[in-house]
Structures are given as structure tokens and as C-alpha cells.
Design a protein around this nucleic acid. Structure first.
Lengths: 204, 204
DNA sequence: GTCTATAGAGTGATAGAC
DNA sequence: GTCTATCACTCTATAGAC
């Protein structure tokens, strides 16, 4: 079991935000230390290498997924398909509140580090998986509203795809439109799936 | 007008591949020089800073977009909607031939550098725009097969979203499935749009 | 245009006192 | 657990000969 300490938490919190905003390579330990109000000795007491700090951040992101995203969304929306769009709305609100500057804390690192650190890549994939599993659960709850032959795992991945692709374009263009275009078309797709499921029912 | 020279081209080519694979920050000039068989003096004769080399690479990507992607796809597919999927197939083939290791040369850099270099970010956005314009042209050619109220600009952005999101997940998981799930669902979406367009026609 | 040599700053990481 | 001091290295970029 990992020890919790105020210093360790501060490092994870501060570095997590910096890595998110500027990337892993572009963030120096010096910058993390000065912003967290911690000195080098303490950092190396908790983490053997910079990469271990990153791994701890990703573990934290995995832990926080439920509390920060899915629980609030589930509290706000009861209908499973609305929950899917509630999740997308959550990211949109964040995008808007940061003037499209930050994007996704996992996606950003995924593209920067996928080829460099095998262990990091694996953990990033794990966070994506956890995210998809949650969305997949919503889709299973909406099973009866969807055509029988739709692969729910693939559809959950598709929702993540729409989110990540939209965040990327919105962040690059500094405009919400590409993200919104993704949501609009995904909504239209879900509407079509529901229509198609209803006509399946009628036939049976 | 920019001067063309063998050395300059070799630097753009070599650095382009390295930035694509490992990212901008993680690639040192030393590595580029040794792999291109060029020395530092030559590099700084053509480019004032590392960032200028990157900008030249992005200009080249923009120039090559047609020749490397859209022209071959148009030669292979005559139907406009099949051309959209032909483009996706092009990226899939590349993903497969690199064991899902490389992803998109623009998307990778977009997420690494969006917040760090304003001029770079702008040029990345420009390449995305050019890509979408091409896809949008296909969609306009398929106008009669799509519902009247569909926003073609947004739909073109959606195609890019599906591609980038799929590449990101495929590269992170080192599996083609998430990319394929994106294509499968996008195909189903287009089928639904075409069905819906036909029923519009019947009503009028 | 290309070369070598090197400046100058910053990096991740370590050692050892407290 | 936290501190300061510092090592060893790498990086971008420059200068000046050829």
C-alpha cells in the first residue's frame, strides 16, 4: 500500500497539472519543485525517477475517474444514453473554461509518450480501458434502445474516439466548434441507432 | 520562394520521421544530424532554430497531403463516400504496417506542442483545415445522398475526429481494434444518413 | 555550404548534513 | 523527511576556418 503524505500529494497534484498543460518532456523537475514548494531531496525520497512520478499521477487519474467524472454525471442524468452525453458535456465544460487550452490529461500524454516508455504506455491504455468500461456500462443499461447487432465495446471505444478527436481539434484550433461537431454527429448517430432498434422491435 | 537543396530536404525528411515517432522535444538535433548524415553547421545554415525546422516540416506535410493521400485514394475509389472511407483505410494500412507504433504525424505534434509554440499551433491547425476541406469536397460530391440539414463542414471535422481518436487509442493500446471500431461505427452512421436522405427524397 | 570546436544554459539525479 | 550543494550529462546554438 502506498504511503499518503502531504508532500507526495502536492507533487502529484502540481506535476499532474503541469504535465497536462505543457507535456511531460517540457516540464522540468525544477519547475515542479518551485511550484509545489518542495525541494529536490523530498521528491527523490518519494520517487526514484521522474517517470515514477508520472506513473503515480496516472494511478491517481485512474482512482479519480469515478469521483470526478462519472459519479457527478450519474447524479445529474438518469437515462443511460443521456449519461454518455453528460460525460461529453463534462469535458466540453472544461474545454470552455480553459479557453480550449488544455484538452485531455490522458490523451495529451498518450501521444507524447506512447513510443518512449512501455510502462507508461500500458498505464495510459489502462485508463482508457477504465473510461470505456464505464461508458460501456451505460450502453448496456440502454441495451434495449440499441440494435441487437451493435458491439457495445466498440461503441464505447467510439465514444472515447469522438471525445479525444474533438478535444484534439478544439485545442489545436482554439475553438469549440470541432468538438461540438463531434457531439452533434454522435447524437445524430445515437438517434439513428434508437430508431433502428425500434423498427427491429416492431418486426419481432 | 524557399530554396530547395539536397541537405535541406534530407533534414526535413529525417527530422520529420523522428518527430513523428518520438515527438519534437524527445528528438535532439544531434540525433537528427547523425541520422541525416549532416553536421550542425549545415543545419543552422538552413534553419535559424529547431522550431524553424519543425515549421518547414509542417509546410512540407501540407504540400504532400494531396500527392501522398488524396490523389491515390481518388484513383482507387470513384464514389465520394467510398473516398472518405478510402482515406481512413489509408491510415489504417499505415497503422498496421508499423504495428500501431506511429499514429498521425500531425496529431502527435498537435497534442505535444499546442500550448508551447503559437506559430506551430497555427500551422498544425492549418494542416487539419486542409485535410477537412478535402474530405468536405467528397461530402459535397455526395450531397444528394445525405440529408439536407447535415452540416458538411461539421461532418468533415467529424471524420477527422474519428480518425485521430482511433489512431490515438490504437497507438496507445497497440491494437487495431479501437481504430476499426471507429470506422465500423462511422460506416453505420453514413449508412443511416443515406437511408434518411432517401426517405427525404421520397417525401418530396 | 559544410566543417569542427565549443560556449552557455539547463537537465535529471545523487550525497550527505540535519 | 527535508534540506543544500553539486555532479555528470545533454541540449541548443554560435564562431570561425575552409
Amino acid at each position: 500500500m502506498t504511503v499518503r503524505s502531504r508532500t507526495r500529494d502536492a507533487l502529484i497534484e502540481t506535476a499532474g497539472t503541469l504535465f497536462w498543460r505543457q507535456g511531460y518532456g517540457a516540464t522540468s523537475l525544477t519547475e515542479i519543485l518551485s511550484q509545489a514548494g518542495v525541494t529536490g531531496g523530498s521528491l527523490y525520497y518519494f520517487f526514484r525517477r521522474k517517470e515514477d512520478l508520472l506513473l503515480a499521477i496516472l494511478d491517481r487519474r485512474l482512482e479519480d475517474l469515478d469521483l470526478q467524472i462519472f459519479v457527478p454525471v450519474e447524479a445529474a442524468e438518469a437515462d443511460p444514453i443521456e449519461r454518455v452525453f453528460g460525460v461529453l458535456g463534462f469535458y466540453r465544460a472544461f474545454l470552455e473554461s480553459t479557453q480550449c487550452e488544455m484538452g485531455c490529461p490522458i490523451g495529451n500524454l498518450a501521444l507524447e509518450l506512447a513510443d518512449l516508455h512501455p510502462e507508461v504506455r500500458q498505464k495510459l491504455a489502462q485508463v482508457f480501458d477504465a473510461w470505456c468500461s464505464r461508458v460501456r456500462k451505460y450502453l448496456e443499461d440502454a441495451r434495449s434502445q440499441l440494435p441487437h447487432d451493435v458491439d457495445l465495446e466498440g461503441l464505447a471505444q467510439f465514444v472515447l474516439t469522438v471525445m479525444e478527436g474533438g478535444l484534439m481539434q478544439a485545442r489545436t484550433a482554439r475553438r469549440l466548434e470541432p468538438f461540438d461537431a463531434g457531439v452533434t454527429n454522435l447524437r445524430r448517430y445515437f438517434d439513428a441507432l434508437q430508431v433502428s432498434a425500434r423498427s427491429e422491435d416492431r418486426r419481432s
